[in-house]
Design a protein around this nucleic acid. Sequence first.
DNA 1: ACCTGAACACCGTTCAAGT
DNA 2: ACCTGAACACCGTTCAAGT
Lengths: 218, 218
Amino acid sequence: MTSPRSRRERPAKPALTRAGIIDAAVAVLRAEGLAKLTMRRLAQELDTGAASLYVYVRNTAALHAAVLDELLGEVDLDTKNTGWAERLEAVLTSYAAVLFRYPGLAQSALVARPSGENYLRLVDTLLGLLAEGDVPRDQAAWGVDLLLQHATATAAEHADERPDEEWQAVFTAVRDASPDTHPHLAAARAELVSGAPEERLSWAFRALIAGIVHTPNP
Amino acid sequence: MTSPRSRRERPAKPALTRAGIIDAAVAVLRAEGLAKLTMRRLAQELDTGAASLYVYVRNTAALHAAVLDELLGEVDLDTKNTGWAERLEAVLTSYAAVLFRYPGLAQSALVARPSGENYLRLVDTLLGLLAEGDVPRDQAAWGVDLLLQHATATAAEHADERPDEEWQAVFTAVRDASPDTHPHLAAARAELVSGAPEERLSWAFRALIAGIVHTPNP
DNA sequence: ACCTGAACACCGTTCAAGT
DNA sequence: ACCTGAACACCGTTCAAGT
Protein backbone atom coordinates (compact mmCIF):
# COMPACT_ATOMS: atom_id res chain seq x y z
CA MET A 1 0.00 0.00 0.00
CA THR A 2 2.86 2.33 0.72
CA SER A 3 3.81 4.13 -2.43
CA PRO A 4 7.52 4.12 -3.38
CA ARG A 5 7.42 7.90 -3.69
CA SER A 6 6.78 8.30 0.01
CA ARG A 7 9.92 6.36 0.87
CA ARG A 8 12.43 7.26 -1.80
CA GLU A 9 11.57 10.67 -3.13
CA ARG A 10 14.42 12.43 -1.33
CA PRO A 11 17.55 11.35 0.53
CA ALA A 12 15.83 10.28 3.76
CA LYS A 13 14.93 13.14 6.05
CA PRO A 14 17.43 12.98 8.93
CA ALA A 15 16.21 13.16 12.50
CA LEU A 16 16.40 16.59 14.10
CA THR A 17 19.26 17.14 16.53
CA ARG A 18 20.68 20.30 17.98
CA ALA A 19 23.98 19.71 16.20
CA GLY A 20 22.22 19.11 12.91
CA ILE A 21 20.24 22.29 13.29
CA ILE A 22 23.36 24.35 14.01
CA ASP A 23 25.14 22.80 11.02
CA ALA A 24 22.23 23.65 8.76
CA ALA A 25 22.18 27.16 10.18
CA VAL A 26 25.86 27.64 9.37
CA ALA A 27 25.19 26.40 5.84
CA VAL A 28 22.33 28.87 5.35
CA LEU A 29 24.47 31.66 6.81
CA ARG A 30 27.35 30.95 4.42
CA ALA A 31 25.11 30.55 1.40
CA GLU A 32 22.65 33.39 1.94
CA GLY A 33 23.80 35.60 4.81
CA LEU A 34 22.41 36.37 8.23
CA ALA A 35 19.34 38.19 6.96
CA LYS A 36 18.11 34.93 5.49
CA LEU A 37 18.97 32.87 8.56
CA THR A 38 15.50 32.94 10.06
CA MET A 39 13.73 30.23 12.01
CA ARG A 40 11.34 29.74 9.11
CA ARG A 41 14.02 29.59 6.44
CA LEU A 42 16.09 27.22 8.57
CA ALA A 43 13.08 24.96 9.16
CA GLN A 44 12.52 24.87 5.40
CA GLU A 45 16.11 23.78 4.94
CA LEU A 46 15.53 20.93 7.40
CA ASP A 47 12.24 20.00 5.78
CA THR A 48 10.14 20.75 8.84
CA GLY A 49 8.15 23.55 10.42
CA ALA A 50 9.61 26.42 12.38
CA ALA A 51 7.86 25.30 15.56
CA SER A 52 9.91 22.08 15.60
CA LEU A 53 13.15 23.99 16.09
CA TYR A 54 12.03 25.39 19.42
CA VAL A 55 12.61 22.01 21.04
CA TYR A 56 16.35 22.46 20.46
CA VAL A 57 16.90 26.22 20.33
CA ARG A 58 15.35 28.60 22.81
CA ASN A 59 15.00 31.47 20.40
CA THR A 60 16.67 33.35 17.57
CA ALA A 61 19.26 34.95 19.86
CA ALA A 62 20.36 31.54 21.13
CA LEU A 63 20.60 30.30 17.55
CA HIS A 64 22.90 33.18 16.66
CA ALA A 65 25.09 32.49 19.69
CA ALA A 66 25.40 28.82 18.79
CA VAL A 67 26.22 29.61 15.17
CA LEU A 68 28.88 32.08 16.24
CA ASP A 69 30.52 29.57 18.53
CA GLU A 70 30.66 27.18 15.60
CA LEU A 71 32.39 29.79 13.43
CA LEU A 72 34.90 30.52 16.19
CA GLY A 73 36.44 27.15 15.36
CA GLU A 74 38.16 29.01 12.52
CA VAL A 75 40.03 31.39 14.80
CA ASP A 76 43.76 30.76 14.65
CA LEU A 77 44.91 30.33 18.25
CA ASP A 78 48.39 29.17 17.39
CA THR A 79 50.19 32.11 15.93
CA LYS A 80 53.86 32.09 15.17
CA ASN A 81 54.97 35.37 16.68
CA THR A 82 57.66 35.60 19.30
CA GLY A 83 56.37 38.01 21.94
CA TRP A 84 53.23 37.39 23.97
CA ALA A 85 51.79 40.79 23.06
CA GLU A 86 52.31 40.17 19.34
CA ARG A 87 50.68 36.75 19.60
CA LEU A 88 47.82 38.24 21.58
CA GLU A 89 47.25 40.83 18.89
CA ALA A 90 47.40 38.14 16.21
CA VAL A 91 44.78 35.96 17.90
CA LEU A 92 42.49 38.95 18.34
CA THR A 93 42.98 39.93 14.72
CA SER A 94 42.07 36.40 13.65
CA TYR A 95 38.95 36.57 15.83
CA ALA A 96 38.03 39.93 14.31
CA ALA A 97 38.57 38.55 10.80
CA VAL A 98 36.03 35.79 11.40
CA LEU A 99 33.49 38.29 12.69
CA PHE A 100 34.14 40.73 9.84
CA ARG A 101 32.75 38.13 7.48
CA TYR A 102 29.42 38.23 9.34
CA PRO A 103 29.00 41.67 10.92
CA GLY A 104 25.37 41.02 11.78
CA LEU A 105 26.43 38.04 13.82
CA ALA A 106 28.92 40.23 15.67
CA GLN A 107 26.07 42.57 16.49
CA SER A 108 24.10 39.67 17.93
CA ALA A 109 27.16 38.42 19.80
CA LEU A 110 27.39 41.58 21.87
CA VAL A 111 24.00 40.81 23.33
CA ALA A 112 23.81 37.01 23.26
CA ARG A 113 27.33 36.00 24.17
CA PRO A 114 28.39 32.58 23.00
CA SER A 115 29.36 30.18 25.75
CA GLY A 116 30.30 27.16 23.66
CA GLU A 117 33.50 25.19 23.43
CA ASN A 118 35.26 27.36 20.86
CA TYR A 119 34.53 30.51 22.78
CA LEU A 120 35.90 29.06 25.99
CA ARG A 121 39.03 27.93 24.21
CA LEU A 122 39.52 31.42 22.83
CA VAL A 123 39.14 33.02 26.27
CA ASP A 124 41.52 30.46 27.75
CA THR A 125 44.12 31.25 25.10
CA LEU A 126 43.87 34.99 25.69
CA LEU A 127 44.20 34.53 29.45
CA GLY A 128 47.24 32.33 28.85
CA LEU A 129 48.95 34.96 26.73
CA LEU A 130 48.29 37.69 29.30
CA ALA A 131 49.66 35.39 32.02
CA GLU A 132 52.75 34.88 29.90
CA GLY A 133 53.15 38.66 29.94
CA ASP A 134 52.94 38.60 33.74
CA VAL A 135 49.75 40.62 33.71
CA PRO A 136 48.10 40.21 37.14
CA ARG A 137 45.29 37.71 36.94
CA ASP A 138 42.50 40.08 37.93
CA GLN A 139 43.54 42.63 35.33
CA ALA A 140 43.81 39.90 32.72
CA ALA A 141 40.32 38.59 33.53
CA TRP A 142 38.68 41.97 33.11
CA GLY A 143 40.96 42.79 30.21
CA VAL A 144 39.89 39.81 28.11
CA ASP A 145 36.34 41.16 28.15
CA LEU A 146 37.59 44.50 26.96
CA LEU A 147 39.66 43.01 24.14
CA LEU A 148 36.93 40.74 22.84
CA GLN A 149 34.35 43.48 23.16
CA HIS A 150 36.40 45.83 21.03
CA ALA A 151 36.90 43.27 18.29
CA THR A 152 33.24 42.31 18.36
CA ALA A 153 31.94 45.87 18.40
CA THR A 154 34.25 46.93 15.58
CA ALA A 155 32.97 44.08 13.43
CA ALA A 156 29.38 44.91 14.39
CA GLU A 157 29.87 48.47 13.18
CA HIS A 158 30.03 47.12 9.65
CA ALA A 159 26.61 45.48 9.82
CA ASP A 160 25.17 48.39 7.89
CA GLU A 161 24.13 47.59 4.36
CA ARG A 162 24.61 51.12 3.09
CA PRO A 163 27.91 52.00 4.77
CA ASP A 164 28.89 54.67 2.24
CA GLU A 165 25.88 56.86 2.87
CA GLU A 166 26.13 56.62 6.65
CA TRP A 167 29.81 57.44 6.56
CA GLN A 168 29.14 60.39 4.29
CA ALA A 169 26.81 61.81 6.94
CA VAL A 170 29.44 61.63 9.67
CA PHE A 171 32.14 62.87 7.31
CA THR A 172 30.05 65.84 6.23
CA ALA A 173 29.09 66.65 9.81
CA VAL A 174 32.74 66.67 10.89
CA ARG A 175 33.80 68.69 7.87
CA ASP A 176 31.12 71.30 8.42
CA ALA A 177 31.76 71.69 12.14
CA SER A 178 32.51 75.33 12.80
CA PRO A 179 35.65 76.21 14.79
CA ASP A 180 33.47 78.58 16.83
CA THR A 181 30.98 76.05 18.10
CA HIS A 182 33.17 72.92 17.95
CA PRO A 183 36.77 74.07 18.29
CA HIS A 184 38.32 70.72 19.16
CA LEU A 185 36.36 68.88 16.53
CA ALA A 186 37.44 71.38 13.91
CA ALA A 187 41.05 71.14 15.03
CA ALA A 188 41.06 67.34 14.90
CA ARG A 189 39.15 67.05 11.60
CA ALA A 190 41.94 65.32 9.73
CA GLU A 191 42.95 63.00 12.54
CA LEU A 192 39.39 61.84 13.15
CA VAL A 193 39.06 60.33 9.71
CA SER A 194 42.66 59.25 9.22
CA GLY A 195 44.10 55.78 9.13
CA ALA A 196 43.23 52.54 7.38
CA PRO A 197 40.84 50.22 9.25
CA GLU A 198 43.64 47.71 9.90
CA GLU A 199 45.88 50.41 11.32
CA ARG A 200 43.17 51.62 13.63
CA LEU A 201 42.32 48.09 14.77
CA SER A 202 45.96 47.32 15.47
CA TRP A 203 46.43 50.60 17.34
CA ALA A 204 43.31 49.93 19.39
CA PHE A 205 44.49 46.46 20.41
CA ARG A 206 47.85 47.83 21.45
CA ALA A 207 46.25 50.68 23.38
CA LEU A 208 43.92 48.24 25.12
CA ILE A 209 46.76 45.93 26.07
CA ALA A 210 48.81 48.85 27.40
CA GLY A 211 45.85 50.06 29.41
CA ILE A 212 45.12 46.62 30.85
CA VAL A 213 48.75 46.17 31.85
CA HIS A 214 48.95 49.56 33.55
CA THR A 215 45.61 49.74 35.33
CA PRO A 216 45.27 47.86 38.62
CA ASN A 217 41.83 46.60 39.58
CA PRO A 218 40.05 48.42 42.43
CA MET B 1 -22.33 70.54 3.89
CA THR B 2 -19.19 69.97 5.91
CA SER B 3 -20.05 68.15 9.09
CA PRO B 4 -18.69 69.67 12.33
CA ARG B 5 -17.17 66.30 13.25
CA SER B 6 -14.75 66.43 10.37
CA ARG B 7 -13.30 69.71 11.60
CA ARG B 8 -13.35 69.49 15.36
CA GLU B 9 -13.20 65.85 16.34
CA ARG B 10 -9.59 65.94 17.56
CA PRO B 11 -7.02 68.65 18.35
CA ALA B 12 -6.06 69.47 14.75
CA LYS B 13 -3.66 67.02 13.15
CA PRO B 14 -0.33 68.85 12.93
CA ALA B 15 1.62 68.86 9.67
CA LEU B 16 4.37 66.27 9.42
CA THR B 17 7.91 67.53 9.90
CA ARG B 18 11.11 65.69 10.59
CA ALA B 19 11.41 67.31 14.02
CA GLY B 20 7.83 66.40 14.88
CA ILE B 21 8.43 62.81 13.84
CA ILE B 22 11.56 62.53 16.00
CA ASP B 23 9.74 64.06 18.96
CA ALA B 24 6.90 61.58 18.59
CA ALA B 25 9.45 58.78 18.30
CA VAL B 26 11.11 59.81 21.56
CA ALA B 27 7.69 59.89 23.21
CA VAL B 28 6.85 56.38 22.02
CA LEU B 29 10.29 55.18 23.11
CA ARG B 30 9.87 56.58 26.62
CA ALA B 31 6.32 55.32 26.99
CA GLU B 32 6.61 51.86 25.46
CA GLY B 33 10.24 51.02 24.79
CA LEU B 34 12.26 50.44 21.64
CA ALA B 35 10.46 47.23 20.69
CA LYS B 36 7.29 49.24 20.14
CA LEU B 37 9.05 52.04 18.27
CA THR B 38 8.24 50.76 14.80
CA MET B 39 7.42 52.71 11.69
CA ARG B 40 3.86 51.50 11.87
CA ARG B 41 3.36 52.32 15.54
CA LEU B 42 4.99 55.71 15.07
CA ALA B 43 2.74 56.47 12.12
CA GLN B 44 -0.28 55.54 14.22
CA GLU B 45 0.89 58.01 16.87
CA LEU B 46 1.06 60.71 14.20
CA ASP B 47 -2.30 59.74 12.80
CA THR B 48 -0.97 58.81 9.40
CA GLY B 49 0.29 55.80 7.46
CA ALA B 50 3.76 54.31 7.78
CA ALA B 51 4.54 55.16 4.17
CA SER B 52 4.27 58.88 4.93
CA LEU B 53 7.27 58.75 7.26
CA TYR B 54 9.61 57.71 4.50
CA VAL B 55 9.58 61.27 3.14
CA TYR B 56 11.43 62.40 6.29
CA VAL B 57 13.32 59.34 7.52
CA ARG B 58 15.28 57.07 5.21
CA ASN B 59 14.62 53.91 7.18
CA THR B 60 14.39 52.45 10.65
CA ALA B 61 18.14 52.64 11.28
CA ALA B 62 18.13 56.37 10.49
CA LEU B 63 15.18 56.82 12.83
CA HIS B 64 17.09 55.15 15.65
CA ALA B 65 20.14 57.31 15.04
CA ALA B 66 18.06 60.49 15.11
CA VAL B 67 16.29 59.43 18.30
CA LEU B 68 19.58 58.65 19.97
CA ASP B 69 21.01 62.03 19.08
CA GLU B 70 17.95 63.60 20.67
CA LEU B 71 18.52 61.65 23.89
CA LEU B 72 22.16 62.66 23.95
CA GLY B 73 20.95 66.11 24.92
CA GLU B 74 20.69 64.67 28.43
CA VAL B 75 24.39 63.88 28.71
CA ASP B 76 26.03 66.04 31.34
CA LEU B 77 29.03 67.65 29.66
CA ASP B 78 29.82 70.03 32.46
CA THR B 79 31.06 67.94 35.35
CA LYS B 80 32.54 69.45 38.45
CA ASN B 81 35.65 67.33 38.90
CA THR B 82 39.08 68.85 39.09
CA GLY B 83 41.32 66.72 36.90
CA TRP B 84 40.78 66.29 33.17
CA ALA B 85 40.82 62.48 33.46
CA GLU B 86 38.18 62.50 36.19
CA ARG B 87 35.98 64.83 34.18
CA LEU B 88 36.49 62.68 31.09
CA GLU B 89 35.38 59.62 33.02
CA ALA B 90 32.38 61.49 34.39
CA VAL B 91 31.19 62.59 30.94
CA LEU B 92 31.58 59.06 29.61
CA THR B 93 29.69 57.68 32.60
CA SER B 94 26.89 60.15 31.95
CA TYR B 95 26.81 59.07 28.29
CA ALA B 96 26.69 55.42 29.35
CA ALA B 97 23.89 56.14 31.82
CA VAL B 98 21.71 57.58 29.05
CA LEU B 99 22.34 54.52 26.88
CA PHE B 100 21.74 52.10 29.75
CA ARG B 101 18.17 53.29 29.84
CA TYR B 102 17.71 52.11 26.24
CA PRO B 103 20.12 49.25 25.56
CA GLY B 104 18.45 48.37 22.27
CA LEU B 105 19.18 51.87 21.06
CA ALA B 106 22.82 51.42 22.01
CA GLN B 107 22.87 48.28 19.90
CA SER B 108 21.53 50.25 16.95
CA ALA B 109 23.98 53.06 17.61
CA LEU B 110 26.97 50.82 17.04
CA VAL B 111 25.83 50.31 13.49
CA ALA B 112 24.01 53.53 12.65
CA ARG B 113 26.13 56.16 14.35
CA PRO B 114 24.37 59.37 15.16
CA SER B 115 25.80 62.46 13.53
CA GLY B 116 23.50 65.09 14.97
CA GLU B 117 24.21 68.17 17.02
CA ASN B 118 24.28 66.52 20.44
CA TYR B 119 26.66 63.82 19.28
CA LEU B 120 29.05 66.36 17.78
CA ARG B 121 28.99 68.37 20.97
CA LEU B 122 29.83 65.24 22.96
CA VAL B 123 32.77 64.39 20.71
CA ASP B 124 34.00 67.97 20.87
CA THR B 125 33.88 67.88 24.67
CA LEU B 126 35.82 64.61 24.86
CA LEU B 127 38.46 65.93 22.48
CA GLY B 128 38.73 69.06 24.61
CA LEU B 129 39.33 67.09 27.78
CA LEU B 130 41.99 64.95 26.14
CA ALA B 131 43.66 68.10 24.82
CA GLU B 132 43.62 69.47 28.34
CA GLY B 133 45.56 66.35 29.37
CA ASP B 134 48.10 67.07 26.65
CA VAL B 135 47.22 63.90 24.80
CA PRO B 136 48.57 64.24 21.25
CA ARG B 137 45.78 65.15 18.87
CA ASP B 138 46.04 62.05 16.71
CA GLN B 139 45.86 59.75 19.70
CA ALA B 140 42.94 61.72 21.10
CA ALA B 141 41.05 61.51 17.82
CA TRP B 142 41.34 57.74 17.60
CA GLY B 143 40.88 57.42 21.33
CA VAL B 144 37.49 59.13 21.37
CA ASP B 145 36.18 56.41 19.09
CA LEU B 146 37.47 53.79 21.47
CA LEU B 147 35.95 55.43 24.54
CA LEU B 148 32.53 55.95 22.99
CA GLN B 149 32.55 52.49 21.49
CA HIS B 150 33.19 50.90 24.86
CA ALA B 151 30.39 52.81 26.55
CA THR B 152 28.01 52.05 23.69
CA ALA B 153 28.89 48.37 23.47
CA THR B 154 28.62 47.90 27.22
CA ALA B 155 25.14 49.39 27.19
CA ALA B 156 24.21 47.27 24.16
CA GLU B 157 25.19 44.13 26.04
CA HIS B 158 22.18 44.67 28.26
CA ALA B 159 19.70 44.64 25.39
CA ASP B 160 18.83 41.07 26.25
CA GLU B 161 15.39 40.60 27.71
CA ARG B 162 16.29 37.45 29.63
CA PRO B 163 19.68 38.46 31.02
CA ASP B 164 19.59 36.06 33.98
CA GLU B 165 19.36 32.94 31.87
CA GLU B 166 22.06 34.03 29.43
CA TRP B 167 24.36 34.90 32.28
CA GLN B 168 23.71 31.58 33.92
CA ALA B 169 24.94 29.85 30.78
CA VAL B 170 28.24 31.72 30.79
CA PHE B 171 28.59 31.33 34.53
CA THR B 172 28.00 27.58 34.37
CA ALA B 173 30.36 27.19 31.45
CA VAL B 174 33.13 28.99 33.31
CA ARG B 175 32.48 27.09 36.52
CA ASP B 176 32.55 23.73 34.74
CA ALA B 177 35.71 24.45 32.76
CA SER B 178 38.21 21.72 33.57
CA PRO B 179 41.71 22.74 34.65
CA ASP B 180 43.04 20.12 32.22
CA THR B 181 41.47 21.50 29.07
CA HIS B 182 41.17 25.16 30.12
CA PRO B 183 43.88 25.81 32.69
CA HIS B 184 43.88 29.60 32.55
CA LEU B 185 40.11 29.82 32.54
CA ALA B 186 39.93 27.58 35.58
CA ALA B 187 42.60 29.60 37.34
CA ALA B 188 40.85 32.89 36.68
CA ARG B 189 37.33 31.66 37.47
CA ALA B 190 36.74 34.03 40.37
CA GLU B 191 38.28 37.07 38.73
CA LEU B 192 36.26 36.62 35.53
CA VAL B 193 32.96 37.11 37.29
CA SER B 194 34.11 39.54 39.99
CA GLY B 195 33.30 43.20 40.37
CA ALA B 196 30.15 45.27 40.25
CA PRO B 197 29.15 46.63 36.83
CA GLU B 198 30.03 50.19 37.88
CA GLU B 199 33.47 49.11 39.08
CA ARG B 200 34.17 47.32 35.83
CA LEU B 201 32.96 50.27 33.75
CA SER B 202 35.12 52.69 35.72
CA TRP B 203 38.15 50.40 35.46
CA ALA B 204 37.59 50.03 31.72
CA PHE B 205 37.44 53.79 31.17
CA ARG B 206 40.63 54.29 33.15
CA ALA B 207 42.37 51.47 31.29
CA LEU B 208 41.28 52.92 27.96
CA ILE B 209 42.47 56.39 28.87
CA ALA B 210 45.82 55.02 30.04
CA GLY B 211 46.18 53.05 26.80
CA ILE B 212 45.27 56.03 24.64
CA VAL B 213 47.79 58.23 26.45
CA HIS B 214 50.60 55.70 26.16
CA THR B 215 50.12 54.42 22.61
CA PRO B 216 51.42 56.60 19.77
CA ASN B 217 49.68 56.39 16.41
CA PRO B 218 51.55 54.59 13.61
C1' DA C 1 9.01 13.54 24.21
C1' DC C 2 8.88 15.13 19.92
C1' DC C 3 6.74 16.98 15.90
C1' DT C 4 3.36 19.53 13.26
C1' DG C 5 0.00 22.87 10.91
C1' DA C 6 -2.18 26.64 11.72
C1' DA C 7 -2.82 30.72 13.91
C1' DC C 8 -1.63 35.12 16.32
C1' DA C 9 0.24 39.31 16.14
C1' DC C 10 2.94 41.66 14.07
C1' DC C 11 7.09 43.78 10.83
C1' DG C 12 9.72 47.25 6.82
C1' DT C 13 9.28 48.99 2.54
C1' DT C 14 7.40 50.07 -2.08
C1' DC C 15 4.21 51.86 -5.27
C1' DA C 16 0.31 53.56 -7.94
C1' DA C 17 -2.96 56.84 -7.28
C1' DG C 18 -4.49 60.85 -5.38
C1' DT C 19 -4.11 65.99 -3.67
C1' DA D 1 5.95 67.75 -3.26
C1' DC D 2 3.59 65.39 -0.09
C1' DC D 3 0.45 61.97 1.47
C1' DT D 4 -2.16 57.73 1.37
C1' DG D 5 -4.17 52.83 1.25
C1' DA D 6 -3.11 48.76 -0.10
C1' DA D 7 -0.12 45.35 -1.23
C1' DC D 8 4.21 42.54 -1.12
C1' DA D 9 6.97 39.69 1.19
C1' DC D 10 8.03 38.39 4.99
C1' DC D 11 8.92 37.73 10.53
C1' DG D 12 9.11 35.06 15.82
C1' DT D 13 6.61 32.46 18.74
C1' DT D 14 2.77 29.78 20.76
C1' DC D 15 -0.44 26.15 21.06
C1' DA D 16 -3.71 22.39 20.48
C1' DA D 17 -3.59 18.21 18.38
C1' DG D 18 -1.29 14.43 16.88
C1' DT D 19 2.39 10.41 17.09
